[in-house]
Design a protein around this nucleic acid. Structure first.
Lengths: 271, 271
DNA sequence: CGCAAATTTGACATCCCTCAAAATTGGTGG
DNA sequence: CCACCAATTTTGAGGGATGTCAAATTTGCG
């Protein structure tokens, strides 16, 4: 039988119990109090070229730095902002890596993206003034907290800043569309292959190798991003290894045959 | 066996052949040439309160109208902009409804959203200067083409416009996150129930009834949005009707038991 | 009124989840 | 530096949700 009536009540997927072992929430309203870091210095920031002030002139950068309240250190596993927290800051990643996730009312969670240095976190909250998702550090990280209320007037006065801000917002929309395409149309092997290729490309964008990199997230994180289970990720990685496409050593990935991996990610059309 | 090696080559889902029967592409570079419509008049636009100039003062609206080149009529099934088209305009929906979709290299397609009056189309293209997705009218519609290059300087001079623009961009990010949550975490009945509730809410936001409305899109469109097949949508609608939750008459939906529909959309957690 | 397209319904196949247990890794204290 | 334990990862067996294929029915449009 198909779709029995009682099947309507089937719960969301939610396998192992979640110990909710996230790090304690840090009060988001006083980021400056968390770490006595030196004030931001964009000129020497390794992420500058991917960040908001990328195209600002010297005077603009100086003004921008005055707005950037302070650099923050976020240890691994710590939440930077939580669900339903009031929106006050955008966070620019200076170093490290984050995951963005949204909880479902049924207890599940979807990871909406992984974020690298130069990228902005919290963009979804501008609209409602409340964070609809949360961000968790995957590695020890540093970020710059940008008070949105002070950022806005700057945008009006510095066209390059405005342009870059819109570039970032639009890029996030485009990236999420790609993810939706994966979630809605691709089978599991294609999802994972596309994910690995994307991770490689991002690794390259940060100046590292495109086919040798370390995954910073767990199998379950990858699964929650791709709409699969951790077990499936594990099985698929084993297959790719057996096929000689990858070397996998725990979280270290070595792409041996990128061409074949691309074939897995993009199957040919049926003749 | 599980995930056999050759299963890696499995194609993307792609059921019935697509006759690619979309309407002919209208050259996107000269929207003013398509229809000899009167110039835009935001003050009397039914969609004003959801649109960009919502919070502008009189002088601001006048200036904004000078930027809005012209109103366009887009007949049902016509594509407004296509994949890989160069980005030049944002399109504000004045009346009607659109679907946004992104093609997958394997021949499939994911519908990234349905868009109502006052909403903006083409936001994903700001980042790269190329449209990564396409927009197709679900009903005869009218839109306003906003040349992005002329819009930008206006944003810097009118803070309410800038604020509304960011509200729209951020809202689109948040909406897509919700869709990803559905695609990655929810079973088919929950996806459809959530979709129907959302359609009802949007109907209400346009001033109509929240539990009596017409779906403007086909079953296959709903399926392509929810990551399912048209057959599944049909079956699920039949079940909801048999359970007394809905009345379905072709594309007319009548929600009889909204409380139960919400239960289907949000199953209780396992004890 | 007639035909193409959309929808519904049925039977069957399969992809991937669920449950379970073994193996490995990483962090921590001695 | 090593031992220990928790967390993560791997692997296996089996079942269920939903896709695929096919045919019947209804709807929409000229």
């Amino acid at each position: 039988m198909y779709f029995t009536s009682k099947s309507l009540r089937w719960g969301l997927r939610d396998h192992k119990k979640k110990p909710a072992m996230e790090a304690p929430i840090v009060p988001p309203r006083s980021p400056a109090g968390r770490a006595a870091e030196p004030p931001a210095n964009c000129r020497h920031c390794p992420a500058l070229q991917h960040c908001l002030p990328a195209w600002l002139d010297e005077a603009g950068i100086t003004e921008f730095e005055r707005v950037v309240v302070r650099r923050l250190a976020i240890p691994r596993h710590q939440r930077m902002f939580g669900l339903d927290a009031p929106f006050e800051y955008l966070y620019a990643i200076r170093s490290g890596q984050f995951k963005g996730q949204r909880a479902s009312p049924g207890g599940g969670a979807q990871i909406t993206g992984f974020y690298m240095p130069g990228e902005l976190l919290g963009l979804e909250a501008i609209s409602t003034g409340q964070h609809a998702s949360e961000a968790v550090a995957l590695t020890d990280s540093t970020v710059c907290a940008l008070p949105y209320a002070m950022l806005t007037p700057l945008l009006g006065r510095h066209p390059p800043l405005l342009k870059q801000f819109h570039h970032v917002l639009s890029g996030e929309i485009a990236r999420q569309q790609s993810t939706m395409l994966l979630l809605g149309n691709a089978r599991a092997p294609q999802r994972l292959a596309a994910f690995l290729l994307d991770q490689g490309a991002r690794s390259a964008a940060q100046g590292d190798s495109a086919d040798r990199f370390a995954l910073r997230m767990s199998r379950d994180d990858i699964a929650a991003y791709l709409g699969l289970t951790g077990e499936s990720i594990s099985r698929l990685l084993s297959m790719l290894r057996q096929d000689g496409i990858l070397n996998v050593s725990n979280r270290a990935i070595d792409i041996l045959d990128a061409a074949r991996l691309r074939e897995v990610a993009t199957p040919l059309e049926p003749a």
